[in-house]
Design a binder for these strands. Sequence first.
DNA 1: AGTGAAAAGGATTTAGC
DNA 2: GCTAAATCCTTTTCACT
Lengths: 149, 149
Amino acid sequence: MQIDAIDRKIIASLGEDARRSYADVGAQVALSAPAVKRRVDRLRAEGVITGFTAVIAPAALGGTTEAFVELFCAGRTSPAEIRRAALRHPEVVAAYTVSGDADAILHLRVSDISHLEEALEGLRAERFVNSTRSTIVLSMLMERPAALT
Amino acid sequence: MQIDAIDRKIIASLGEDARRSYADVGAQVALSAPAVKRRVDRLRAEGVITGFTAVIAPAALGGTTEAFVELFCAGRTSPAEIRRAALRHPEVVAAYTVSGDADAILHLRVSDISHLEEALEGLRAERFVNSTRSTIVLSMLMERPAALT
DNA sequence: AGTGAAAAGGATTTAGC
DNA sequence: GCTAAATCCTTTTCACT
């Protein structure tokens, strides 16, 4: 479970381009392709690298509007219950329990405002949701993958 | 700039595993490897697929604490200015301008609470920031890549 | 427009060191 | 960790629909 400087460089390199070949990554870190592969295999086995994914322009998939929705929940609502509800609603792209007056924050991606209204209706229909408070995203300024931090 | 059902399946497949071979993806969508490659090339050229990245467990890189920070800015602050500031602070993993009383929401990933305090100091030192309001994330319930929506 | 087949050049992966 | 070798994948070209 030890991550050294070379592992970090490998992660950064694959964070920039997950389809980069092991030979290319190896050139950056002065290692042979098999050595890089073994490290990547190890990092995956250890759960450091969770996977590799395509980065998609949300607009291309019809998700052109975003919002943050604060959830105010009934007294005995468990995080697991909120999580299950969030997964049921495809508009929810991320969900967090939080400190402060709200119990959770959901990040929603929808096609337009009327779709947002629908999604909010659906969320408020969940048994444990007392009320919601929405903040509309005017523009996405930046999003940085964890690998490039 | 047209995306058909096969494109969508290809995006979903590479969203699940960006290092999957074109032959494997082709097997899922009943297309040959060259045909899949041409579609992926086209989707990249059109900006639908922005890139491919490694998904990293934030904890492995020392980012075990998260927070949402609302920014209240001086009257004449442009989104571009907020964006530049967000990029300057490595703790900021995402930034959005929003409707409502705050001007922007920043998503921060830090190693611990004292690191959060430092990061907040840094943000408040920006000329255009009048004040901030922070919400600590208690637990990340789910995060869904855009490709799997 | 978009497809598959084939071939050359690379990449991955196993094995031995 | 490296090199070498077999296998598989990628990518270009070309012919077909």
